[in-house]
Each structure stands twice: as structure tokens, then as C-alpha cells.
């Protein structure tokens, strides 16, 4: 484990994770809005926002799947040191991290059980761009409609069709995060 792995965590865990959680709660509760999360400086290619989400939500009880370029020694070591999360295959993951392309096919991820729909994966999707424009979002958390630059819409429509089952997503880019719970109706426009 190199020294980079030991750096870049929260310097004031209780307070920084509280702020990061509130940002992620706002993101998930108001799909399409962009929230700022700060406090983490993780190794590349992990974004600051994704790093903060991992520090805030993951620990030894949450298996994490790393996809594509994120499945590298620097990220593995950083997560192991700061979160202690076991790294697992896609099917066993509570959290999955990677670009949208690397996370494919997304039907590998846990969608919960009919009697326990909460036992579903949360995907942290790293984006090159994240803007409040693009696909039209409606549903819980959205007063009229919202827009979000999603990588596609078909996968999210298919996921919505499984409701109350389905995975939930955070989209991260630099220090910004947006949420897309399984309850959101996604349309092209």
C-alpha cells in the first residue's frame, strides 16, 4: 500500500461526513439537482465527489464493486484504508463505482427482494460532464420536472419498470453530485 492511499480522507470525519450526507440526501431526494460535496481528495480517477460519498456511506459492512478504470491499485488501496469495505464482484455489491460504460451491463446489480426492496445496489457513476439539462425527470422529489445529463435513458426506464425494486444512482463529476432513485421516471426529450 503506497502513501497516497493513506491521504485524502476526511480531516474532520464527523462534520465533513455530515455535510456530505446532507448533500447526498438532497441529491437523492431532489433528482436532477446538483449538490456540492467536499472534503475528500482521493487518488485519480476517483472524483472528489465520489470519494466523499464512499467515505460517508461505505465501511466494512458494505461490499463495493469497482468497475473499469476505477478498479486500479490506487483506488483499491484508498478504499481499503479509509472505508475498510470488502471489494467484490458486481452481483454482490452494495455500492458500485465506475463510468457508465464500465458499469455495463447494469442488470448485474442487486435490485432488492420483493419483501426487502432496500437490499438493492447504489451505483456511483463517474461522469465527464454533469449538467441540469438533457433527459426529462419526473416523480417523487420533483415539483414539476427536472433535467439531467444522463448517459442514456433506456436503462433507467427499464429500472423504473421494476419499481419498487431497482438500483439507485448517484452521478458524480468533480465535486458535484446528482441523484437518481429508482422511483424517477426518465424520458427523452
Amino acid at each position: 500500500m503506497n502513501s497516497i492511499a493513506l491521504q485524502g480522507g476526511f480531516t474532520d470525519a464527523a462534520v465533513q461526513s455530515a455535510h456530505a450526507f446532507r448533500a447526498s440526501l438532497e441529491a437523492m431526494a431532489r433528482p436532477g439537482t446538483l449538490q456540492t460535496v467536499a472534503g475528500a481528495t482521493p487518488p485519480a480517477p476517483l472524483s472528489a465527489a465520489a470519494g466523499a460519498l464512499l467515505l460517508t456511506l461505505c465501511d466494512g459492512t458494505t461490499p463495493v464493486h469497482l468497475a473499469g478504470a476505477h478498479d486500479c491499485a490506487a483506488v483499491r488501496d484508498w478504499i481499503t484504508f479509509h472505508c475498510g469495505a470488502p471489494l467484490v464482484c458486481a452481483e454482490d455489491a452494495s455500492f458500485a463505482l465506475g463510468s457508465w460504460a464500465a458499469l455495463q451491463p447494469v442488470n448485474r446489480f442487486a435490485i432488492g427482494l420483493p419483501d426487502y426492496p432496500d437490499r438493492a445496489a447504489t451505483l456511483i457513476v463517474e461522469m465527464d460532464q454533469l449538467e441540469p439539462q438533457g433527459a426529462r425527470l419526473t416523480g417523487p422529489g420533483i415539483a414539476a420536472e427536472a433535467r439531467l445529463s444522463l448517459p442514456e435513458t433506456a436503462a433507467f426506464r427499464a429500472n423504473r419498470a421494476l419499481f419498487p425494486l431497482g438500483f439507485d444512482c448517484f452521478f458524480t463529476c468533480d465535486n458535484r453530485v446528482a441523484g437518481l432513485p429508482r422511483s424517477t421516471i426518465v424520458e427523452d426529450c
Binding site: 464527523a14 461526513s17 455530515a18 450526507f21 419498487p164 439507485d168 429508482r182 422511483s183
Partner: peptide, 29 residues
């Protein structure tokens, strides 16, 4: 700790809250 609960406990509760938001009205254990 800040707000009494230890960080691991808060993480567990925070994950439950997010799943609750994702499935409105469903009771998350």
C-alpha cells in the same frame, strides 16, 4: 462523538435513509 452516535452507526442510518427516499413509504429495517 458529534451528535452522540459513532460514525459507523451514522453511516448505517444514512444508508437506510437514502433507501427510504428511493422507495417512498417502504419501511427500511
Amino acid at each position: 462523538n458529534f451528535a452522540y452516535l459513532d460514525e459507523q452507526t451514522k453511516r448505517m442510518i444514512r444508508r437506510a435513509i437514502l433507501k427510504g427516499i428511493a422507495v417512498p413509504g417502504y419501511q427500511v429495517p
